[in-house]
């Protein structure tokens, strides 16, 4: 396992260097920091989503769910819309980036927590129902947000539109630092949970018998998931609206691949493996798409396609087994 992890880390290193150096033109003093910032943001998003997905799959005891599939990314535009609604376009524009980030993160994490708790209550342990309810709730949130946008002032509506579809261009250094701190804290806490997560994998009764009642661990993990996915989304915007933040299927592809490359029940291996593979997929994918193929299509669209297909395969294979 250790050698495999080292190998993936090597691949990641190559991807990162290539991302920094391929097709380098123009003043280096500008291009390198610009690319570095984007690289760091990509890595942060990958780390946050991969770890969050591992946690989510363990606490829901299945291998095909991701937090974003449960409607998390739909919350982003909702939070933005509500903020513009409450503050007006000018008030909104006057917010400093760190304030905006903080409010965004708080809104996302808070609403996300409510969403997950409601979902887990509704589904009562039935995985397929959880999944389906999540997907439909995502649709509901998205259309409700759309409705809300139509109801606000048309001028303000323009602001939300441009914000929520803004493609990511320049990374704000301060934001990057705040997001890194939040994600870093989340990952560190998740790492501390690793042995307890192993125990939870044995099933609820066995975990209780071993002194790890699932309810508390569920709560802690959900908090971390909301913190990490919220930070990633607030930094980059959800992939679904053109940012490179959470997409429904990114985490799914990454964790499924991590389980394939490093088959293990130990979260002490699975977490780093998912982190590394997530970074390879996002940075390597961006490299291939942007630098090598020069496609105009955002990476997200491709990931969603592959991810959706992976999801179907996993779902149908699970049935066959």
């Amino acid at each position: 396992m250790g050698r495999r992890l080292a190998l993936i880390a090597g691949v990641l290193g190559v991807c990162a260097c290539a991302y920094m150096l391929v097709g380098l033109t123009g003043p280096l003093g500008f291009v390198l920091p610009y690319r570095g910032g984007k690289l760091a943001a990509l890595a942060l998003v990958a780390v946050a989503l991969s770890v969050a997905t591992v946690l989510f799959q363990t606490i829901t005891a299945n291998r095909i769910l991701t937090p974003s599939l449960m409607g998390f990314d739909a919350l982003y535009v909702l939070v933005l819309t509500v903020m513009v609604q409450a503050l007006g376009a000018s008030g909104f524009a006057a917010l400093s980036p760190p304030t905006l980030f903080a409010v965004n993160l708080a809104g996302l994490a808070g609403l996300g927590l409510v969403l997950f708790v409601v979902l887990m209550r509704l589904a009562k342990g039935d995985m397929v129902r959880l999944c389906l309810t999540g997907v439909v709730l995502g649709l509901l949130i998205r259309s409700a947000t759309h409705l809300l946008q139509r109801l606000i002032d048309p001028g303000d509506y323009q602001v939300v539109q441009s914000l929520s579809v803004a493609r990511f261009t320049q990374v704000d250094g301060t934001l990057l630092a705040i997001a890194a701190a939040a994600v870093g804290a989340g990952v560190a806490l998740a790492w501390r949970l690793r042995h307890r997560l192993d125990v939870l994998d044995l099933g609820e009764a066995a975990a209780t018998g071993l002194g790890e009642p699932p309810a508390r661990l569920h709560r802690q993990a959900l908090l971390l998931i909301c913190l990490m996915v919220g930070s990633a989304t607030a930094l980059a915007g959800p992939m679904a609206s053109g940012g490179f933040g959470p997409s429904s299927f990114f985490g799914l592809v990454v964790v499924a691949f991590a389980r394939l490359v490093t088959p293990t029940h130990r979260h002490a291996v699975l977490i780093p493996s998912a982190v590394l593979i997530g970074a390879v997929v996002l940075i390597g994918g961006q490299l291939v798409l942007e630098r090598l193929l020069s496609l105009s299509t955002p990476l997200i669209v491709v990931i969603e396609l592959i991810g959706g297909a992976t999801f179907l395969i996993l779902l149908l294979k699970r049935r066959a087994a």
Partner: peptide, 16 residues
Amino acid sequence: LLVPLVALVYGGVIGG
């Protein structure tokens, strides 16, 4: 419930 889930994701993939 598996049927609607597969159907929704299948629709999503074609949408992709």
